[in-house]
Every structure is written in C-alpha cells, then in structure tokens.
C-alpha cells in the first residue's frame, strides 16, 4: 500500500537547536498512528512540519503524496486538524460551526447541508443543532470538534491531545469515533498524554530529545522492552531525556 505520510530524515533547526532530528517514518492509509513524547521532545514541531505550517530545515516529507516544501496548499486541503485548545467557536451554534468549516474548505452549500445532517445524526446531536457550542458539555464539544475536522473528507486527520479532561466513558466514545473514521480509511495521527490511549493505536512512535527513539506496534514495543504496558516503555525511554522545553 502507498504510505499516506512519508518522511525521510526530516529535520528542523532553530538556530543551533535541533528541535526535530532526522525523522524517518511512514504511516499507512487507515492507520491510527500514536505520536508520543515528553514535553519538549519535539512533537509539536514535527506535527507542524507535517501540516505544512512550518518549513523543514532539511530532509524530505510527503503528505498524501504532496511535498511539504512546495505543495503546502494542496496538503492543507487534504488534512484535518483538531487540538484540545482550539477548534470550535464558542459563540456560534453547532450548525454554524459545521457550515463555517465546510465553507473554509470551499464545499458547495448543498454538500455542506447534507454533511451537516449526516454529522448531527452520527453524533446524535440533532436536538442541539441550534445550541451555542459554549453550552455543550466538554465531551460533546470534543466529539463535535473531531467530526468537524473530518467535514471535508480529508485523507489524514491530526489530533493534538484531543481528550484532555473528560470522563472515561466520554473518552471511549471519542475513541469509538476515531476507530470508525479509521475503518472508513482516514489516517489518524494522534498525540496524547494518556498512555493507555497509546495502546489503541496500530503503531506508536516515541520521541525523545528530537529523535524517534522507538517505533512499532504497542505489542511489539512491550515485548522488546520487557514491560506489560506502554507507560513503562515510555518512562524507560523518556526519562533518559536530556532536554526540556
């Protein structure tokens, strides 16, 4: 299968500081890829390069077949993005938010209308269509934000710590949505501080001090390092880190 994300020695330097050093990995279509790392390990930098927000210093990378140096506009059309901090407008209603994001990606009005109904039905939010987002519980907001990031049917969706602060049931409902999206062929690229969530991923990479220290399926990583959970594997690798933000 052709990889959806492919990087080769992707590097970002800020002056003498190497934030991300020679990252080389591939992510397959429909894969859930966990991108782990301690604070300051270079996760955010790497993710910004992949989204076309930050120009790499050296190395190669293609996203959905487009080059991160020259084709950032095409990349932006093919990816969705959701972070815990910002995604939805609090002072717009559910429908208005969906319409807005659809509009940004240049979708036809008819298409947006159909998509809106489909989303509301999937999230069981029909009754809340005209509710301001600020009045929704946190868990619903997160689910809505995820669905909105998929509104333009992207190939890849980047999730930056999507599940902070919600209860365990809501967190699982959120992962149900992720599974569902992956099942339909969307590639999911996710960062998280919850190590048990790492185990939901098909493969995880663990970044330490700007380099990828480990990359494999959770089961193989556990076997290789001799622990029975990813948290211990992560701890083993990350505590050797020399640098912090």
């Amino acid at each position: 299968m052709r990889p959806v994300i492919k990087t080769d020695k992707l590097t970002k330097r800020f002056g003498a500081f190497v934030a991300a050093n020679e990252l080389t990995f591939e992510v397959e279509k429909g894969e859930i890829f966990g991108f782990l790392g301690a604070n300051g390990a270079g996760k955010t930098t790497a993710m910004r390069m992949l989204c076309g927000l930050l120009m790499p210093s050296s190395g190669k990378a293609t996203i959905a077949g487009f080059d991160v140096y020259t084709q950032t506009d095409q990349i932006k059309r093919r990816i969705g993005y959701m972070s815990q901090k910002f995604s939805l407008y609090d002072d717009l209603t559910v429908t208005e938010n969906i319409r807005f994001y659809g509009g940004i990606y240049g979708m036809e009005i008819k298409e947006i209308k159909a998509k809106t109904l489909e989303l509301l039905a999937e999230l069981q939010l029909e009754k809340e269509a005209k509710t301001l987002v600020r009045d929704l519980p946190l868990g619903w907001k997160q689910k809505l934000a995820f669905s909105v990031s998929l509104v333009h049917s992207p190939d890849i969706v980047f999730l930056d710590e999507p599940t902070g602060g919600v209860d365990p049931v809501t967190r699982r409902q959120f992962w149900d949505l992720i599974y569902h999206a992956a099942d339909k062929g969307v590639t999911v690229f996710v960062t998280t501080h919850y190590m048990d969530e790492a185990e939901y991923c098909n493969r995880v990479s663990i970044m330490v001090d700007g380099v990828i220290a480990a990359l494999d399926s959770p089961a193989k990583l556990k076997k290789k390092y001799g622990y029975d959970n990813i948290e211990d594997v992560f701890y083993e690798l990350a505590r050797k880190a020399k640098r912090s933000e």
Binding site: A38, H193, M195, F234, Y235, A241
Partner: peptide, 10 residues
C-alpha cells in the same frame, strides 16, 4: 498533573 508528561507525573 494535567498536561504534564508521564515522566514528570511519575
């Protein structure tokens, strides 16, 4: 420990 990585949390 909200928003802090696993190592710092431990």
């Amino acid at each position: 420990t909200t928003g802090v990585d696993v190592v710092s949390r431990k």
